[in-house]
Simulated scan of single mutants.
Amino acid sequence: MSEPYQSGPYDPYDPHRQAGAAGPWQGYDQQAPPGHDPQLTQQWQGQTWETQSHPQTPAAPETAYLPPRDNPYQAQQQHFADPYAQPQAQPYAQPHAPQPRTAQPYAQPQPQPEPATAPGHGPGAGPGPEAAPDYGPATLVGNARITDAQRARLEGRSPVIEPGMQPALLTAVLGLLLAVTAPAAPYALVVPLVLLQAVTAAGWFRLNGMWPARQGIALAFAGALTADVAVLAAGRDHAPAAILGPLGAWVLLSLVLQLRSHASPDERMYGLMATVASTALSVLATGYLGAGPHAVSVGAAAVAVAVLARALPLPTPVSVVVSLLAAAGAGIAVGGMTGLGAKGALLGGAAAACALIGHRVASYDYPSRFVHFTAGVALPLSAAAPVVWVLGRALG
């Protein structure tokens, strides 16, 4: 280390003191401006230290102490930055007042769409949004924003709508065709029977909300045709085995096909139940082919009369009673012509009761017009087929 400076009393007029002695003000004395007396300048003498023995800290760049400048694209870069990135500490950054973020230079303000308000619910239309329902109360003139079933529920009425007179007329025509062709020949009865089975299969799937369901409809209809062929081949005496055999085989086939489906478990179960029920109804309609000709004539005629009476504009309890009485009368009338006599009243009344159940099923939960002209036409006759088959064999 260099020799330290000698400390002592300060005397500015010391003649032995040399100008420009080493010290912290040496450079200043050597570069004194004109007219300045270095003798009159105060000098500092004292102990100092060697600066070369200590590490020198580099000076921070000048720009590190400046506040960050506003970048017009900074907001856009921060918008697309990684949300999980850790913020990096900036060295030598001094706290400064937050700068307001500037908008993007090319961003145009987007107009906000006004919320759509229903008629009569705008500003100044009355009470606040809590008291304003989305839809008004049901009225007799109709509301285009709700269905007829919803309007019926709001008005306290039943959403079940019956098929009406036109489907009832089609049911009556199909029933009369069965009644007329049954005594003629079994092959003549097959024609209206096949039509009945096709409409039953399609109507049941549409009644369950499954449309189009071509595979299920084709499967149920194929099972019905198989049962028809089996009965024609085995004869009416072996009709029970000829009907129940294809029914069991088609239920097993439906189960296998649904297990191979790639749908969700709930959809597969729903499709399985609809396919089995449609197949059962279509196959059981073959009971008209296995029953006696006179029983088919009485039962089909009773169903036709009962459905027509049920379509009359009467209260439901009165309409049901009138339908049963009319069916019993038709059974007696047709039974007198076929040899069954008074037994036809029992057969006609039982067939009419099953037909009314099928009629009610076709009216379930406000069905569509297509359901009325398929299930509404076929279900009364298909539901009455097992009763006609059993009671026809029991009565003679």
Rank of each mutant, 00 (worst) to 15 (best):
A300W: 13
V334D: 14
T275M: 05
G341H: 08
Y288P: 15
A291T: 15
G290M: 05
A291M: 09
T286C: 05
L284G: 09
A333Y: 11
A277W: 06
G271P: 07
G290E: 05
R268V: 10
A326V: 00
E267I: 09
S319K: 01
V320Q: 15
P315Y: 05
V298Q: 09
T279L: 08
T316L: 15
D266L: 05
L255R: 03
T275A: 11
S319M: 02
V318H: 08
Q258M: 12
G336D: 12
Y288R: 02
L314I: 05
A291P: 10
L324K: 00
V256F: 12
L289D: 12
L340T: 08
G287F: 04
E267G: 05
P317C: 01
V321P: 04
M337K: 06
Y270H: 15
A326P: 05
S319V: 03
L281Q: 02
Y270N: 12
L324T: 07
A333L: 12
A301R: 00
K343A: 15
V322R: 07
V283K: 01
P317R: 00
A300C: 06
S278T: 14
A285F: 07
G271S: 07
A295P: 11
A295N: 07
S278F: 14
V307E: 13
G287Y: 03
A302R: 00
A280F: 13
E267N: 13
L284H: 07
A301L: 06
A274N: 06
G271C: 05
V303H: 05
P315S: 06
V298Y: 13
L253S: 04
G271L: 11
Y288Q: 08
G341N: 08
A280E: 11
A300L: 02
G292M: 01
T316K: 10
S323K: 01
L325P: 06
P293Y: 04
L257A: 10
R260I: 12
A302I: 05
A342I: 09
S261Q: 06
L308V: 09
L314W: 04
T286L: 01
M273W: 12
G287R: 04
G341Q: 06
T275Y: 00
A277Y: 11
S282M: 04
A304L: 02
Q258N: 15
L324A: 02
H294N: 09
V256G: 06
G339F: 04
L312I: 03
T316D: 14
L325Y: 01
L284I: 07
D266V: 14
G299K: 00
H262W: 14
V305C: 08
G344Q: 07
R310M: 14
T286G: 03
S278D: 06
E267S: 14
G290D: 07
A263P: 04
V276W: 03
G271N: 10
G331P: 03
A311G: 07
G290L: 02
V305R: 01
L312F: 05
A328N: 03
L308S: 04
S278W: 11
